[in-house]
C-alpha cells in the first residue's frame, strides 16, 4: 500500500465538473510529478487532497487512514504540508517568524499565553536551519513582504517544510521564475528528495522529467497518462506538448 492514495475523486463547482474519477497514489520516499495544461484541475486536485475542498465522491487515504473530508489543519497535523501556486505567506512577519510559527513546537505551545514565543534556542536554531536549506539564511530578519519574488517562492517552501511533513505537496514551485531561479529551485527539490515524500505540480517539463520518479498527466479533470518519465516520453499528449522540443 502506498503512503498516500486517492480513489476515484469527483468534484464539481456548480455544473462544472472539475475532477472526474481521479485516482492517484504516491509511494513513500519518491518524487511524483503532476503535469497538465492550464485549468486542467491540478491545483483543485491538491485542494481536495489537502482538505480545502471535500470531494463529492471518492476517498483519500494517508498512511492507511481515511482522511477524506478532514479539515486542512487536521491533515496538516498528520504530516502533510503544501506550498501554494499563488504566494500565501504571513506577509508582515519576518522570514524567520514565517518559519517559526509553522514549526510543530510552536503549535504545541499554542495555549501558552505568557511565555516567550521564540525563547527556546533549539526552536530558533531549527527555524534558521530551515531558512538555510532554502537559501534564505541571510534573510531571516527581513519582512516577508519586502523580499524579492524568487526569495518569497523559497520562503513559501520553507513554511511548508517547517511543518516537518512526511508528505509535501508543491504547487508549481518555479512559477514566475527566470532560469536562474528555476535552477536554484530544482537544486532545492533535488536535495529534498529522499528526505520527504514529494508531489510536485510543474509546467516546466525539463524540471519534472529530470527529477520525478513517476509522472501523472491530468487533463480535463482526468488522469490521462501515468508512468515513469521514460514511459511518458512516448505518450502522444506529452509528445504534442513542448516536451517534444526538449527530447
Amino acid at each position: 500500500m502506498a503512503l498516500f492514495e486517492a480513489h476515484e475523486l469527483h468534484l464539481r463547482f456548480g455544473d462544472r465538473v472539475v475532477l472526474e474519477d481521479i485516482s492517484l497514489s504516491f509511494e513513500a520516499g519518491r518524487l511524483s510529478g503532476i503535469m497538465g495544461p492550464n485549468g486542467a484541475g491540478k491545483t483543485t486536485c491538491f485542494n481536495v487532497l489537502t482538505g480545502r475542498y471535500r470531494p463529492d465522491r471518492g476517498r483519500v487515504l494517508f498512511d492507511g487512514a481515511d482522511i477524506t473530508g478532514r479539515s486542512p489543519q487536521a491533515i496538516a497535523r498528520m504530516g502533510i504540508a503544501r506550498s501554494f501556486q499563488l504566494m500565501n505567506l504571513f506577509d508582515e512577519f519576518t522570514a524567520f517568524e514565517n518559519v517559526a510559527i509553522a514549526l510543530p513546537q510552536t503549535r504545541r505551545r499554542g495555549a501558552d499565553a505568557v511565555g516567550q514565543a521564540y525563547g527556546d534556542a533549539a526552536l530558533v536554531a531549527e527555524a534558521h536551519d530551515i531558512l538555510g536549506t532554502v537559501g534564505l539564511g541571510q534573510r531571516a530578519d527581513q519582512i516577508a513582504k519586502s523580499l524579492p519574488y524568487g526569495e518569497r517562492r523559497a520562503l513559501e517552501i520553507a513554511v511548508a517544510l517547517a511543518c516537518r511533513p512526511k508528505l509535501l505537496f508543491l504547487d508549481e514551485p518555479t512559477a514566475g521564475l527566470g532560469s536562474d531561479g528555476r535552477a536554484r529551485l530544482a537544486d532545492l527539490v533535488r536535495r529534498l528528495k529522499g528526505q520527504v515524500t514529494l508531489v510536485v505540480i510543474e509546467h516546466d517539463m525539463e524540471f519534472l522529467f529530470s527529477l520525478a520518479d513517476d509522472i501523472s498527466v491530468i487533463h480535463w479533470g482526468q488522469v490521462i497518462a501515468q508512468g515513469s518519465p521514460a514511459e511518458l516520453r512516448t505518450n502522444p499528449w506529452v509528445k504534442n506538448s513542448n516536451l517534444g522540443k526538449l527530447a
Binding site: 489537502t50 479539515s71 486542512p72 489543519q73 496538516a76 497535523r77 504540508a81 503544501r82 501554494f84 500565501n88 505567506l89 504571513f90 506577509d91 508582515e92 512577519f93 517568524e97 510559527i101 509553522a102 510543530p104 510552536t106 503549535r107 505551545r109 499554542g110 495555549a111 501558552d112 499565553a113 505568557v114 511565555g115 516567550q116 514565543a117 521564540y118 513554511v159 517547517a162 511543518c163
Partner: peptide
Amino acid sequence: LLWRLVHSPFGRILKAIKQNETRARFVGYD
C-alpha cells in the same frame, strides 16, 4: 498581562491568523 500575551506563542499565532487565516490552517492551526 497583555504585553506578555502578544509576545507569547498564543499571541503570535493570533497575529499569524490575522495576516493569513488560510495559511494558518494549512500549517495545522485550529
